[in-house]
Design a protein around this nucleic acid. Structure first.
Lengths: 111, 111
DNA sequence: GACTATCCTATAGTCTATCTATGGGAAACG
DNA sequence: CGTTTCCCATAGATAGACTATAGGATAGTC
């Protein structure tokens, strides 16, 4: 099968995390990474060295809030959830992503 | 008008240049940049500091061939054209781009 | 009880590829 | 002539992903 795992394109990781939190509501980093990988049919794989620094940045920016809890597997884990500011940021990033990928599509589909 | 010019997403510039050369056949750097900007309805703007280093890399890789000529405006310009290896590379990059953007779409459109 | 797989967090350092800033030079046009 | 437009090129800054590494705790198995 040609399902080679791929890198996350720079600039899209925050958007993918924020969107995952809309779906998951309240989740730890590991679960967010799993969700992205599964929802993308194993194409997108978020590495730990990308994930945790990104979550830190988003905490500082106030896009997510964090709380230590017990995971469903009885482990200590840091659960994240969207803040109102995070929702606004997600909307901005989605809008921008769609504008840019639409523009790229025009170029690469030009006959 | 909300048409704010945007950066080229890292990893897509080679693809955009190669595709432009399919369309233009034989063109100098300045003309390639114009083509990308116009075809994308002024959304994508390639900066000179990105464009010329990218063309150098592509020359070294053998994806394009170059030749000094006179431009349509009577200026000295370096015209680029695709090589067979460049066509193969474009096919690879298109395939990869579509796989990744399809995967991102699955995540951000998940209900 | 020891061993291993799985779950979960975190940081330092590398690397790639874009951008900004800068510096040319030559033709056209007023 | 002076300004605009066309055209090339490089150095350095920057962003954001990656690899490599380190650690600890639970569950399951032999």
């Amino acid at each position: 099968m040609g399902n080679v795992k791929t890198e996350i394109p720079p600039g899209t990781l925050h958007m993918l995390i924020l969107k995952s939190l809309v779906r998951l509501g309240d989740m730890h980093g590991y679960g967010i990474a799993q969700h992205i990988q599964q929802t993308s049919d194993e194409v997108l794989q978020v590495e730990e060295g990308s994930l945790y620094p990104a979550l830190q940045r988003m905490l500082i920016k106030g896009w997510v809030a964090a709380e230590w809890k017990q995971s469903e597997n009885n482990r200590r884990a840091r659960f994240y959830q969207l803040t109102p500011e995070g929702r606004k940021q997600l909307a901005r990033e989605l809008r921008n992503y769609q504008q840019v990928s639409g523009a790229i599509a025009k170029v690469i589909e030009a006959v």
